[in-house]
Design a protein around this nucleic acid. Structure first.
Lengths: 112, 112
DNA sequence: CCTGCCAATCGTATATCGACGATGCACGCT
DNA sequence: AGCGTGCATCGTCGATATACGATTGGCAGG
């Protein structure tokens, strides 16, 4: 097994999520995270990555009815929001969720 | 008590939240709700209404550093997303959260 | 009835989003 | 070394978001 297929990326990830204590900061953080998933395509991408059904960009492109460049843009937005991480794995790029960020988002939403 | 002050609006609200079963529909719904709170001002408004610290538009306008017309726009977006409800109370308008919609949002986020 | 006030709406300017095709860049392979 | 593949970035376009001041509309009070 020199090639562990498609799940060799980002295994343990962050240990825990940071939580802002300033209320205004929390509002801004929640708004930022919400904006990141405020599009059906990005929700679908997050779901795909959480379910581990694909981690490679090519798989995502095949799953969604959007152009490759568009997918790349959505991935960029998700990455900038800190919700996902991307690692270069040879000629491909492997994306996976940042569990801490997702947990933080859930916490902030629950605190509404 | 002919004038029960500022909390006479939308008391019992909806009994329960509807939950979409179609995955694509769920994605769209989550994206729509997320977009509604994808702005710090709207997050702040939701928090104000949840904490019942104000229900009248004038109170919200005084709390946030934004013009009255801008607040009104944000309220409109939140209302169109189904997250809040507005009732005319004499010359004023009373807004409050739609608990069912908030619960649905929390459920959808938790299901990520 | 006319005149307040409070909130919604209109009109506008600027910035960002969302989509695509075309191009650029880095990596493996032969 | 050269080539092909896979993803990111650029440039563009229309649509939408965000903010404000100005105006309109509805509801009590004089």
């Amino acid at each position: 097994m020199t090639k562990p297929s498609t799940q060799a990326c980002c295994p343990p990830a962050e240990p825990m999520p940071p939580v802002p204590r300033d209320p205004l900061e929390a509002d801004a953080q929640l708004a930022r995270l919400a904006k990141a998933i405020a599009h059906p395509a990005r929700v679908a991408i997050i779901r795909l990555l959480v379910r581990q059904e694909g981690c490679i960009v090519g798989d995502i492109v095949e799953e969604l009815p959007l152009a490759q460049s568009t997918i790349s843009q959505h991935l960029k937005q998700l990455k900038e929001a800190g919700l996902i991480r991307g690692e270069v794995d040879g000629p491909r790029v492997c994306y996976c969720v940042e569990p801490g960020a997702v947990a933080l988002f859930k916490t902030l939403v629950e605190a509404l």
